[in-house]
Nucleic acid binder design. Structure first.
Lengths: 207, 207, 207, 207
DNA sequence: TATGAATGAGGGTTCATTCAT
DNA sequence: CATGAATGAACCCTCATTCAT
């Protein structure tokens, strides 16, 4: 017989993919259980209800994504600000374009933004805010001179916006620019562009 | 007696707000009809079905948003590239932060990106693509020297991303930076920042 | 402007075909009005309600069918019993296989038998019973010797059953015997067969 | 707790009666579930949808009817053609006039003929066609001399028509001949009449 | 007089959830 | 402990009918 843990794990896997694809509302407990090879009542049994499963998925996916692509990926302690910015951007793009569980994380966040649930606040505090904090340090480091809170914040927005654009507008991008690829080499180019573009922007903003 | 057009208009208003808030799937015709003060069968009578109403809402909102905040708002024919970029960015932010029908347009697009329906392709072709084309002209104008298609495209992504960030990540922004306001003066500041940031970025990218 | 009578007539035509095809329940007032080029409210205006239209159609179709194919079609006053039986059978088959209004009559009766409405009793009294009476005279004429009421009745059943089989089981016949045609020549053959078959049957039954 | 099978069985019973009475379209799942003492969602749970239940009913009723009144009921292997014809006719009449599930079968077929659904073809192939095949053997056996395909077919039509008349025109018969009973003894008489009538007819047709 | 916008009851179906086993 | 049959609310949609014009 399959253990509790195994069933829960399979449920999390199946739910992650389906929630990421369809969003919370459109996903059905039935489909999740079917894909997980579990009983229709398994969700309620293991996670209380659909929402409980959803929260568990969010938690699980966040951890998996940040573990696989940490924002400091491959950085030496002596890395320059530019290198750290590139690492941050690259890791974000990698999470977005990963095929598998890490990408679920991005899609789930996107769904949360479009249609927030009670899980959003916790998710932001746990995942979003720390990343922003990291990015803030980098921006302050790259600033031409000590910058005001407001200016730094605007730069953060500019950088994050450039990255998350690929998460939030992907259908439009793929429809208008079908020739745009997102293979590792393409992502590398994109990351470099965003880094250079932002570097110039930051310097201009903190002139 | 209420005329056909009046009822249709009330239905469009109610549906616009509810679709923008909840998305296509989660919105219910019952709630829409209730808010419009119409009978439950009114949607089917006037628009065929829920999808027909949705398409009509999309069309109506797009037109309303672009009419109220055209991307060339207040521009003279002799406007410089920088002025045109500022106008483009400002109009986009105004659409996003408008309270009322024009903002529905942005929210509807956001929902479409997160959970596409059959309307997405048409919406992109009609609204999204032309805006990108306009922005492309501006970017080419601002480039330090003739730029490759790929570089121009990346700059488009960077600019659009910075603007749409406020559409797609608003819940996170408001949670982390509750002190950040979005009154007209704030939007003006944001628009200027994005414009300057992007100007520097474009020049760097086309150096 | 079209007169009342014209609209009523077009409504009857359209309703006849649709009621015959789909039955009373499955037919929709909307479709009938559309085909008749009339307003959605025309049925209620001219015939009270859907049932009223149905009754009018039944009446109109019965008259049209019996007028086009009277059971004594082409008979001389001096016709023999066999000739009169053949004429009766032939007219019944012609009504069933006619393409147009007379066939609606048969289909409507078939639908009434499967799913009786309040119109059935009147229809039977007006159309069905007189025909049976005529057939009874013919059978008594053909009997080898004066027959009991019960025997005559059973012969009536046998003859009618043979004819109406093509009305009530046509889908099955066409599915199992797709090569069986129902052109005029085929109907002539069928009528002759039924007549001869029944003649022998009657004689046997009244031996 | 009630078992799965029990609920399914009750649903089949209730649906059989209601489908037989009203036909597929006019029957409502709400009424079926009410009569079966089941929840409104039970139909979808056990049979997928209304159509699935209908198909199951058709299957179940066909089997029940043919099991209770097989066309070879009480025949010895050495039975004569006349005896086999009588058995065939009698079993058909018994199915039609049975009160209970076997009669549903006849009524369902009648409804299918008047307003075919997707189930008709399968039903014909599985139930109708085999019966016709059996009858064909009998007719060939009874023919005065080897008969053409066309003649045999016409005789089949004549015999089936005489029997099914009581299925398809019962409302008219009962209205015009209220004194005609359909008790077992009456059916026996009818069966004998049809057999004798047909016997004479077949001999005449194959003379 | 004749229209068509509007109605509300009722249709089949889907869903997350519950509970006896 | 884990199941799957059963639930009832809510979904979108269709329908004949009504009523102000």
């Amino acid at each position: 017989m399959r253990t509790n843990l195994e069933t829960q794990q399979r449920l999390l896997e199946a739910a992650g993919e389906i929630f990421a694809t369809r969003g919370f509302r459109a996903a059905t407990v039935r489909e999740i259980c079917q894909r997980a090879g579990a009983n229709i009542a398994a969700v309620n049994y293991h996670f209380g209800d659909k929402e409980g499963l959803y929260f568990a998925v969010l938690k699980s996916c966040s951890e998996a994504a940040l573990k696989k692509y940490p924002p400091t990926l491959g950085l030496k302690p002596t890395a320059t600000g530019e290198e750290r910015l590139l690492a941050f951007v690259r890791s974000l793009l990698l999470r977005i374009f990963d095929e598998g569980r890490p990408s679920w994380h991005s899609k789930l966040i996107a769904h949360e933004m479009a249609e927030p649930t009670k899980a959003l606040a916790a998710l932001i505090d746990k995942v979003y805010a720390p990343a922003l904090k990291q990015l803030e340090m980098i921006v302050r480091d790259l600033a031409s001179r000590p910058a005001s809170v407001a200016v730094v914040r605007q730069c953060l927005f500019s950088i994050l916006g450039q990255c998350l654009y690929f998460q939030n507008s992907r259908p439009a991008i793929q429809h208008i620019h079908p020739e745009q690829g997102f293979a590792p080499a393409d992502l590398e180019r994109l990351a470099k562009h965003i880094t250079q573009f932002s570097l110039a922007g930051i310097r201009q903003a903190t002139k």
